[in-house]
Design a binder for these strands. Structure first.
Lengths: 219, 219
DNA sequence: TTCCGGAATTTTTGATCAAAAGTTTGACAA
DNA sequence: TTGTCAAACTTTTGATCAAAAATTCCGGAA
């Protein structure tokens, strides 16, 4: 048995997985960009073995696609892929939000409002990096409160898949007209009104979808 | 360029991944059972490296869970997990079925009817292995026709997660009262009636869910 | 020029080894 | 008997190497 609650040192492959996933999530690779194991290994200054394992996880999550010839790449966003991703998001994320509304504390609402303030700040400053990072934190803070591990990880995978395309949108149109349905969402969460929270989220998603759709059409 | 369509030799880690996934899918491990990399490697008569990569993919798909202490195990089925899995299945699988209804050919309907006959045979013979294998083939043959890669892989992951619990159900109650909503489903597919096909599938899923719910409650 | 073929280079893949981490066993004390 | 502790054993992990596979590069033919 293990008496103390020890801070377990996480394995390198796990750390590498998280780093690369966050890099994809924040759009640090362009859609279509090919990744090499060795390239990542030298870039991240780690051995090649942990990178291999991280890559396998990311391909399993469809964050990367295998190119047949033993290579992996960030998938190109197509209209079909986009619709599939948002089909799922549109079903799962409102549900998670609704579940979160049952569990949220008033302190957590305060914290969320602070994160939302930082989002608005990032939009005002035109800082897409910060926007994506804070927006991600905002939503996943809520989703974690739902206490639904399987739905949570499914949504995580969907965000990673959408990440590169989202980044392109921000780069192309700037942060000026990015959606902010967050205040009505938080009002609903504060009252513990699950259905209303879910509805706000649907609208938030719909807005995001429209932006990406537009950006796809242009290509 | 590559003129000929060559039969590319798949890497070992890919083959191992598929083998272990199918083993989980067919319930060859019990819920809660711990798996070791070395154990799998010697059991499958392969090296340890490919097994490691396969394990990473399977944990990413939530087919296996990491036990904190660097070990992996087949997750125990809980009421909460079950509801989450079926929440997703209930949204995604009818959609895939509906999409498939648009694309299916009459020859493919004939093939499906043959698979369904084999399912009935397996039920009659009380052969859970064959039942699970053929039932899997039946549904995924349909899902593949939808031509929706992301939804397809999401459902694949959900089936692997449900696999061990399904196997327990078959083992406990036998194959006698297993659902067969397949004939109405195929009639709908044959007419290209997407909504009706989706509805049959919902009923099929509901029946399966009830069975597993029952088996969880007993534990 | 463009296209083809093959050498040179790079990358992936799987085995193997040593170190780190985790589990089991068994002796010994209470 | 029960509980504790350390030694023995097993497993995971990450680096490294050789072989296989893929890509790039380059010279020569059309």
């Amino acid at each position: 048995m293990n008496m103390m609650t020890v801070t377990r040192k996480i394995p390198e492959h796990q750390a590498v997985y998280e780093r690369v996933r966050d890099m994809i999530l924040l759009g640090m690779f362009s859609p279509g960009e090919a990744l090499t194991i060795q390239g990542l290994a030298s870039r991240l200054e780690v051995g090649v073995t942990p990178v291999r394992e991280a890559i396998r996880r990311l391909t399993a999550e469809q964050a990367l696609e295998t190119l047949g010839n033993r290579r992996v790449a960030v998938p190109e966003m197509t209209a079909g892929r986009l619709e599939e991703i948002y089909f799922l998001r549109m079903h799962v994320e409102p549900e998670l939000t609704q579940r979160a509304a049952k569990n949220i504390s008033s302190q957590q609402v305060v914290d969320l409002r602070e994160i939302d303030r930082q989002i608005d700040e990032a939009i005002a400053l035109g800082d897409p990096e910060a926007y994506l990072e804070r927006n991600n934190l905002f939503h996943f803070t809520i989703y974690r409160l739902a206490g639904s591990a399987i739905l949570f990880r499914t949504v995580q995978s969907l965000w990673v898949q959408a990440g590169p395309a989202l980044r392109v949108v921000c780069g192309r149109y700037g942060t000026a007209n990015l959606p902010d349905k967050h205040s009505t969402l938080m009002d609903a969460l504060e009252r513990g009104d699950g259905p209303a929270a879910a509805q706000s989220l649907r609208e938030d998603l719909e807005q995001g979808l429209d932006l990406v759709r537009e950006s796809i059409r242009v290509d």
